[in-house]
């Protein structure tokens, strides 16, 4: 096990606890704002809360992934990776997983609080859980791909989100539909299988795509 390589990625979050807590706080802040805007109508909120959770998750994951490579790029670590004879695909894979684990996974753990706030039934809650577990790693990978594309541009705060959000659509559609099906008492196996296959397709291929993108981004 390449322990120091693992440690480096983890320390990035451990030594900047804000990276972990800010997305969590942001998520709960935005979620709490929705009832203020659409009114405290219980049945309406119950109907649209899965969509709200997913939209908020998107914003949160964009926050943490859109400048993902900025530091490594400015510190010359990307150059170091690409001038090393070691294959960096594993490191990139690790980076995706760890970014997801520290920025999105805490939110997923705290989703039951949302379900108390918005009266979500236990059955629906498990489905929300499942779709988030399967869908968010894809969102994070795509967001990181966007940040690799925009890495070389100095002012790119909103550019990454603009190019990546269209790619989120399949995950969004199937997640939202799974949740809707379960709250209407319909089967939702198909949606879960589709989400699972998207995840299994994206995760192994993304490191290779990222490596290639990074090469172009630092100009070769």
């Amino acid at each position: 096990m390449n322990s120091i390589i693992f440690k480096k990625e983890i320390y990035t979050y451990f030594r900047n606890l804000n990276y972990i807590f800010l997305p969590l706080i942001f998520f709960f802040l935005v979620i709490s704002i929705f009832p203020l805007v659409i009114g405290p109508n219980k049945s309406l909120i119950a109907k649209i809360i899965p969509g709200i959770i997913w939209i908020t998750i998107i914003f949160t994951s964009l926050l943490s992934s859109s400048n993902f490579f900025k530091d490594d790029y400015n510190n010359g670590i990307i150059e170091m990776y690409l001038t090393s004879e070691k294959s960096i695909e594993f490191i990139l894979f690790l980076k995706i997983i760890i970014c997801w684990f520290f920025t999105i996974f805490p939110i997923i753990i705290f989703i039951p609080i949302v379900s108390i706030m918005f009266n979500i039934s236990l059955h629906t809650l498990t489905t929300i859980f499942l779709t988030l577990l399967l869908g968010t790693p894809v969102l994070v990978s795509i967001g990181i791909f966007g940040s690799a594309l925009t890495m070389g541009i100095s002012k790119n705060n909103i550019l990454g989100p603009i190019i990546t959000v269209p790619f989120y659509i399949p995950v969004l559609i199937f997640s939202a539909s799974a949740i809707e099906s379960v709250s209407n008492g319909l089967p939702y196996d198909l949606q879960i299988y589709v989400l699972l296959s998207i995840l299994l397709l994206i995760l192994p291929t993304m490191p290779y795509l990222l490596k290639y993108t990074l090469r172009i981004s630092i100009n070769n």
Binding site: L149, T150, I153, N156, L159, I162, I163, V165, P166
Partner: peptide
Amino acid sequence: FLYIGIIVIYSS
């Protein structure tokens, strides 16, 4: 939106 993304990233 996909087209716009491509145009915007190129122009940046």
